[in-house]
Amino acid sequence: MSGQDTGGPLLSGRGMIGGYGGADILHGVNIEAHAGEIVVIVGPNGAGKSTAMKALFGMMPLREGRVTLRGADITALSPQDRVKAGMGFVPQTGNVFASMSVEENLEMGGFLREDDVSETMEMVFSLFPILKEKRRQPAGELSGGQRQQVAVGRALMTRPEALMLDEPTAGVSPIVMDELFDKILDIAATGPAILMVEQNARQALNIADRGYVLAQGENRYEGTGADLMADPEVRRSFLGG
């Protein structure tokens, strides 16, 4: 699925304005991610972090602005078509098929693929060994951290070039969170761009190549993870000192 590499960002949303029906939530947000990069979006509650991500994935219609993947305009594509085009998305809640086995969850992830998915599944299993062990168990019976692994594994089954994660560590213990972040680093090492929204801003910025700080539906700061962590303004306003 690799297209012509023009050196530009793999995924980019520029001047995104929109909301659900009523008032706008996003007032001109710019976000981009390059291949192999981990990009984190942080910000206070109601800043429009998740909304920005949904806009990138086509789950919220944009009133203005455009989204491109590998330079091609995908603003008009449905989420399903974006999956076909090479994007993967892990929702924050309801991100597994609870009644289906781990293996079936992964198969559903690769539903659109016509070719043999067993190789990709092996890749996911090598990334998350615990899933191989529990491959026959219904995903609904797994622990919170394991479910998140299933959710991420499911999204990886289409071998996306851009993987988007909506608060992957919401509701898991700190130990599990660290483990998940390690896995995310592992995934990034295999090539795709990773874009995630995080509530645990410090830890996320620690592993991020770049970060965006959103507030009130606008870009407030952006820079490398380390820069943002070091910026006293950002620390005081958004990272709790």
């Binding site: 399903q80 309801g94 659109l112």
Partner: peptide, 16 residues
């Protein structure tokens, strides 16, 4: 696909 749709409609749609 039917089971997935019945289990979690949104995720099934996302999966194509």
């Amino acid at each position: 696909a039917m089971r997935a749709y019945s289990d979690n409609e949104d995720l099934a749609l996302l999966s194509g």
